[in-house]
Design a protein around this nucleic acid. Structure first.
Lengths: 338, 338
DNA sequence: CCTTGGCACTCTTCGCATGTGAGTGCCAGC
DNA sequence: GCTGGCACTCACATGCGAAGAGTGCCAAGG
């Protein structure tokens, strides 16, 4: 177990390193923080912290920098979440309030988050499985061609073309539309499959094929769109710290384009509250020297998707966490209103 | 007017520089291209080309590199478009054929272009103004709340919420839906405003307010969504050449995130065929050292949007142009089929 | 037992001088 | 108008020395 003062030293190292981006030495530490002890004492503490694996020195005789383990301890025990100031909160609200539709909400959220944190922002589109159906619409485009439109409570719209096995009358279509909506409107997507299971039975034999086709297209849509989508922004911010290791910016950009990787990463964070993953805690190789701060957001009390930021492990964790949490809250409010 | 041989020399310089990424000298030129003259002669030609502003030397005693003007001449007069090979064409078609909806088509196109050209790919979503209406749907979500869904012939779907000034009966809604569709279905978006102008007159006085509200929302949607959207991919490729000037990659990334800049850029290319903009021909500062190759694509014979790539001015123009043209053709086919 | 000041030691970093090599410009000859 | 030769110019890499920051260790003091 580390003594209280050693934890203070670790905290000071993290804070200074995040600020200056340079390895921090014992002398500088005592000057900038009032620890009440001399550099020599700090040196002893540093040696202990290094033995425990919390800090390391890049070169034999340079200052120390925190390791992933050090950041982990810092995030878990030594630092809280820095709340946004009132003006910042107002700015967030103003910026998000102007959104006209879901795409716009997501786009604005990404920009906002990227600007606030000066890092790469990632926002997942509200997922279908966890949201509910607002309406299902069926349009006859041709005698045997129906367009299926699915509208979610978060405002998302998905549409699919259905080629029917047999011509389908306007009356039958209206019937199906009415029955379908009375069953699934307001229900969660996950429940839809069982809710519509016996629907074909209610129709004339000649229409059953078409009804089944429409329903299976609907179910497919639910599954397909579960391959959820992301919006990413602020990649230019990578160059801010990429200047130190230009070698690492490339794999990061590549990983960001592989949305699958990010989706998996966001999905792994089971905690609906804030999750911080640091450096090598992230399985994907390209992101080994980055940290990801993510949090769920949603229209009701429930989280329907995640958002977060990707940045260097040497990030301002309290500030970033504060910004991420605040943005998630306001986005939730916006979604609930619309 | 430059002699034939001097043009050959310029072509050789461009080709070598694109290949090696290093300034090319007179000796190397004669070795790698059979120009039939000695290095000394080439030196004279180079001096002439430099006087004319087609090439320059980065340092007093280094080889020459092409200027923007040099690339321009190369593209206009010295190089054609390199057609894709048959296997490449097959690969393009296979890759695009798997798309399920418009988003997917665009996403796949971006990935494909980025991989083929190893540069940044930009694809504009099919524009609303130039496309036609497939269907307009109106859904009553509450007595005085209507959802407007707009479906285009390219498969794009837009939806807006409308708060009505007065409750609106299901019968009136059906009436409006029918009238609206009979007027605008199959028509170009640009024509919609005049087509619906007198529509409120056909309704009872009490409903006119609501009808007008719905219509103005529809028109707003047309205008708003004209702020067209883009998808960008392959930004990791910037690091390939960013390694030479790490300073320039940042403004490029920033410009790419400012979609407005790119949209303007694509919009400026009036020629529906291929357009190449080189270096300083691009007004935006961050893109001064890049070139943009763009071309229109569309479902019918008509171009509904643009796609292209952004890369260093020292790019393989014939190959890039070939890839861009081929991809645009196949995307057009896919859109026409769906 | 912890803290402190002192001191030698280790490396990195920077500036500077030097050498090398690629490439040019120019000139005289063909 | 082409060619070979030659002097010249820089950019770039290499090596060396001085400076500086930071550490580890030790002996003394609370």
């Amino acid at each position: 177990m580390l003594s209280e003062r050693r934890l203070q030293v670790l905290r000071a190292i993290v804070q200074d390193y995040v600020g200056t981006e340079e390895p921090v030495g014992s002398k500088a530490l005592t000057e900038r923080h009032s620890l009440g002890v001399s550099p020599a004492t700090v040196r002893n503490d540093m040696a202990a912290l290094e033995d425990e694996g919390y800090i390391a020195q890049p070169h034999t005789s340079a200052g120390r920098i925190p390791t992933d383990k050090g950041y982990r301890l810092f995030v878990d025990k030594l630092a809280g979440v820095k709340p946004m100031t009132a003006p910042e909160r107002r700015a967030i609200q103003n910026f998000l309030d102007g959104a006209v539709d879901l795409d716009d909400v997501v786009a604005r959220t990404v920009r906002l988050l990227a600007q606030l944190t000066r890092q790469v922002a990632v926002v997942q589109y509200p997922s279908l499985t966890r949201s509910t159906v607002r309406h299902v619409e069926l349009l006859a485009l041709a005698p045997a061609r129906v367009m299926l439109v699915l509208i979610t409570d978060t405002g998302r719209v998905e549409q699919r073309m259905v080629d029917c096995p047999a011509p389908f009358g306007e009356a039958s279509l209206a019937d199906l539309r009415a029955r379908l909506n009375s069953r699934v409107a307001g229900r969660r997507f996950a429940d839809v499959p069982t809710l519509v299971e016996d629907l074909p039975d209610a129709f004339e034999h000649e229409d059953r094929g078409t009804v089944s086709t429409v329903l299976s297209t609907l179910l497919e849509t639910l599954v397909e769109e579960n391959e959820e989508r992301l919006m990413i922004g602020g990649t230019a911010n990578l160059t801010r710290f990429g200047h130190d290791f230009p070698l690492t910016i490339r794999p990061v950009l590549e990983a960001l384009e592989e949305q699958v990787v990010l989706l998996k990463l966001l999905g792994e964070a089971k905690d609906p509250g804030m999750t911080v993953r640091i450096g090598h805690e992230i399985a994907h190789e390209g992101l080994n020297s980055t940290s990801v701060v993510s949090v769920g957001y949603g229209s009701g009390g429930e989280a329907v998707a995640k958002l977060g930021v990707v940045g260097p492990t040497r990030m301002d964790y309290p500030g970033t966490m504060g910004a991420v949490r605040a943005v998630a809250r306001y986005v939730g409010q916006i979604l609930a209103e619309s």
